[in-house]
Design a protein around this nucleic acid. Structure first.
Length: 808
RNA sequence: GCCCGGGUGGCGGAACCGGUAGACGCAAGGGACUUAAAAUCCCUUGGGGGAAACCCCGUGCGGGUUCGAAUCCCGCCCCGGGCACCA
């Protein structure tokens, strides 16, 4: 039963895998000497958040794809550093701990241990001696250090900002925790908007650089586009509308060409000028409206396509182009965070303004007609138009007019060219417990004082009751002996900042730490950093395209500018992997279609599981997980096993076709691995195995390259095969096979013969046949003659070694 | 609404720059081995017509460019993802 038909002992994944995992550990196969390495290659995968549910197939898919890349590079002769760690702070961990009534300080380490155990079973080439955990004070000491560097550089600022507040949880929620205006944990509870003092990193100062560098970094196109859209650069003008009382209202517009059609202004309800502008008669209506808006949560306020609301302030300002007085309104469709928090209403040429003007009976004045002639229905928002009712600018195309009008107004001090970004500053404050405390002390005498670097880390105290309470202040504030602290400057009693920082800060610099995990006196060793960074290849999901990847680019740029890093982009090459679905649907607990990796690894072995995941679709697109398919991979490995067991050293003459296939396979697999096309690489290996079986080739020299090429996918299996083939060192110390272009060449090729573009025949010809010969032979072909019949061949198209097309 | 990605056999998916559509695998059917089954091995497998040689049709839909289109262009439909009152 344990024997195959060929009489060799069967492949037993469990035995092979535990054996090699043990040996790798004993021999330190996956460890790299970071100082001595000659060809450093930093292969990074996005570190996991260790949830209580354990490792997910999505994680395994991502890690295996990255691991294959690392192993491939190693076989190509690089010293590959492949570290892994755990991203274990944050609101998800904390909420889960609350839910099951456990303390995160006990729960999370247990989850990490479980995760590590699961990860080790997958057989990754991870150097575990450099593991890091974001919850480790040895790590977050340096997260706090990063904060202090940004603070000193003026990139960390404190200001009031609106946040989502759940009255039931008595705490702040992230935008994604607000579902239809309600708290995700309390479906019946409306979330409200509150203003709180928050710490921000001013990432917007780097917006243009973050955008510019995207033009040259080697990243997945999909990820680059997500970042470009997220940064959201737009070009336009800031125009000034003056009130008779002399107030200046600045509005940002991308369409300065339509300023002659601006018949009203709208300010955000929170706009600082509203108080001063509002006329006595409108005071109560304005106050009421502002009050109503402030009670809404941030998310539902931003949900579009709802009915427009707003009130008139009773004030007027002069349109800078026409000089006419236009009414000033406030409305919640104008956002304080974008532009100047005020807009000019051009109802004839803007969808939203049109809707607003119609509802409130404001004047709609056309100033653009379509360039193609005719009137065009209002609102007409195309750029492809010509100005009318615009004084001296009548007849000018929109693009040109936008420049000319801005220029004209700027000469009169009423406007300027302006660039805007959608990107907003990064709020890093969390009124929560489970995170690194922000290292700031508030002193009544000295003001805001950064914690001196030698006092780091500011340890997160163990608090049994970390629940938010009635006070609505971070739980850390209740811990008196921690909260009350002498001021580092004057020594008098002061207070600690009680907010902790966002988890995205933990992960914004972790790749800098891996090579330097052994040091407690520096965040990252300069010499090791110069040698190993930036990261050579980073692989992860596009769900982190805008936040994590943007933040880590920003932190890297900031640290570069402060002189800590010799580079400003953290990841030389980034590739986004796809997602695994099951039965065409995303895996989720509610659908009950979650695939738990452990069961499959137990049943089929890690190698078969790894390979199956890589085979089910293109790595960068993802694929559909089906139970039936996995057997095919196991059958394939069994076939390879038999080839290895039957391999012979006394080789003799080797079949020409098999040799050709070998070289074609090496060429194909090498190219596919460079581009992470794992599914087609596996298919090529299968074809090669089929060829060896069909030709009956048993030469060890024909099997060995197969094992090397297979080893990134099925590392334990390959090690075992390599040993059976008589090697006493790891297959990962072998080198990647090379192909000989001449041996890969087919000498006989099949030439397709078409008549009028339809395939009518094929013929075996020598490679490199000339056009003349090919046409000559094609004309003699019986099938061709039938289709050409009496007609004259007007023209022949010849594609070398591919086809001849006869046109009649 | 805007910006991406995708739509190919019964299924997952191949097909480089416009040049043999369906590689590889799964499933299914038939056969060999077996007392029998499993495993393994061999064969068949896009649809239609035909005894066969062969022929016709076929890559979401409708047009177009081209000797030739899954691939390029125009207009739609559907699925997945991102952004979304961003002025």
């Amino acid at each position: 039963m344990n024997d195959t038909r060929d009489g060799v002992s069967a492949y037993d994944p469990a035995a092979v895998e535990s054996k090699w995992q043990r040996l790798w550990e004993e021999r330190g196969t996956n460890r790299v000497d970071l100082r001595a390495a000659e060809r450093p290659y930093y292969n990074l995968m996005m570190f996991p958040y260790p949830s209580a549910e354990g490792l997910h197939v999505g994680n395994v898919f991502a890690f295996v794809g990255s691991d294959i890349h690392g192993r491939f590079r190693r076989l190509q002769g690089f010293d590959v550093f492949e570290p892994l760690g755990f991203d274990a702070f944050g609101i998800h961990s904390e909420n889960y701990a609350l839910k099951i009534n456990q303390h995160p300080a006990r729960l999370i380490p247990a989850n990490i241990d479980n995760f590590r155990k699961q990860l080790k079973r997958v057989g990754l080439m991870v150097d575990w001696s450099h593991e890091l955990q974001t919850i480790d004070p040895r790590y977050y000491k340096w997260t706090q250090w990063v904060f202090l560097q940004l603070y000193k550089a003026g990139l960390a600022v404190r200001r009031k900002a609106p946040v989502n507040w759940c009255p039931e949880c008595k705490t702040v929620l992230a935008n994604e925790q607000v579902i239809d205006g309600n708290c995700e944990r309390h479906p019946g509870t409306r979330v409200v908007q509150r203003y709180l003092e928050q710490w921000f990193f001013t990432i917007t100062k780097y917006a243009q650089r973050l955008l510019d560098n995207l033009s040259w970094i080697d990243w997945s196109e999909s990820t680059r586009l997500l970042q470009i859209n997220w940064i959201g650069r737009s070009e336009g003008a800031e125009l000034v509308f003056r009130t008779s009382s002399g107030e200046e209202i600045r509005v940002y517009t991308t369409r300065p060409d339509t300023v002659f059609g601006a018949t009203y202004l709208v300010l955000a309800p929170e706009h600082p000028l509203v108080d001063r502008l509002t006329a006595p008669a409108q005071r109560s209506a304005v106050d009421q409206y502002r009050d109503r808006v402030s009670r809404m949560d941030l998310v539902s306020r931003r949900v579009g396509s709802k009915e427009k609301t707003g009130v008139f302030t009773g004030a007027y300002a002069a349109n800078p182009a026409t000089g006419e007085e236009v009414p000033i309104w406030i409305a919640d469709y104008v956002l304080m965070e974008y532009g100047s928090g005020a807009i000019m209403g051009v109802p004839a040429h803007d969808e939203r303004d049109f809707e607003f003007a119609r509802k409130f009976g404001l004047e709609i004045r056309r100033v653009v007609v379509p360039a193609s002639g005719g009137e065009g229905e209002l609102p007409f928002t195309d750029w492809d138009g010509v100005l009318v009712n615009s004084g001296a600018f009548d007849g000018m195309p929109c693009r040109e007019a936008a420049r000319a009008i801005t220029q004209w107004l700027s000469e009169r001090g009423l406007g300027s060219f302006q660039v805007q970004y959608r990107l907003h500053d990064w709020c890093i404050s969390r009124q929560r417990y489970w995170g690194p405390p922000i290292p700031i002390i508030y002193c009544d005498h000295c003001g805001t004082v950064p914690v001196p670097e030698q006092d780091l880390p500011v340890e997160l105290p163990y608090i049994e009751d970390f629940r938010p309470d009635e006070s609505g202040i971070s739980p850390l504030a209740r811990h008196e002996e921690w909260y009350r602290v002498p001021c580092p400057q004057c020594g008098q009693l002061a207070r600690r900042e009680t907010d902790v920082s966002d988890t995205f800060l933990d992960s914004a610099w972790y790749f800098l730490r891996y090579p330097s995990t052994e040091f407690d006196d520096r965040p990252f060793d300069p010499e090791l950093t110069r040698k190993w960074l930036p990261v050579d290849t980073y692989i992860g999901g596009n769900e982190h395209a805008t936040l994590h990847l943007m933040y880590s680019r920003f932190i890297t740029m900031a640290l570069h500018d402060l002189g800590y890093l010799p580079f400003e982009e953290p990841y030389k090459r980034f590739r986004a992997h796809g997602t695994i679905v099951k039965d065409g649907a995303k895996m989720s607990k509610s659908r009950g279609n979650v695939v738990v990796p452990d069961e499959y690894i137990a049943k089929w072995g890690a190698d078969t599981f790894r390979m199956y995941l890589m085979f089910l679709g293109p790595y960068q697109e993802g694929g559909d997980f089906r139970d039936e398919g996995i057997a095919g991979i196991r059958r394939f490995l069994d076939k390879v096993w038999v080839l290895v067991k039957n391999a012979r050293r006394d080789e003799g003459e080797i079949d020409r076709a098999a040799m050709r296939k070998l070289h074609q396979t090496i060429r194909k697999v090498t190219g596919d691995l460079e581009e992470l096309r794992y599914n087609t690489a596996i298919a090529a290996l299968m074809e090669y195995v089929n060829t060896l079986r069909e030709t009956g080739v048993t030469a060890a020299s024909m099997v060995e390259p197969l094992i090397v090429m297979l080893s990134p996918f099925a590392p334990h299996f390959a090690e075992e095969c390599w040993e059976i083939l008589g090697h006493d060192r790891s297959v990962f110390e072998a080198s990647w096979p090379k192909w000989d272009e001449k041996l890969a060449e087919e000498e006989q090729i099949e030439l397709v013969i078409q008549v009028n573009g339809k395939v009518r025949s094929r013929m075996q010809v020598a490679r490199g046949i000339t056009e003349e010969q090919a046409v000559q032979r094609a004309l003699q072909d019986e099938a061709v003659q039938r289709f050409v019949k009496g007609r004259k061949v007007r023209k022949a198209i010849f594609v070398e070694d591919r086809l001849v097309n006869l046109v009649t």
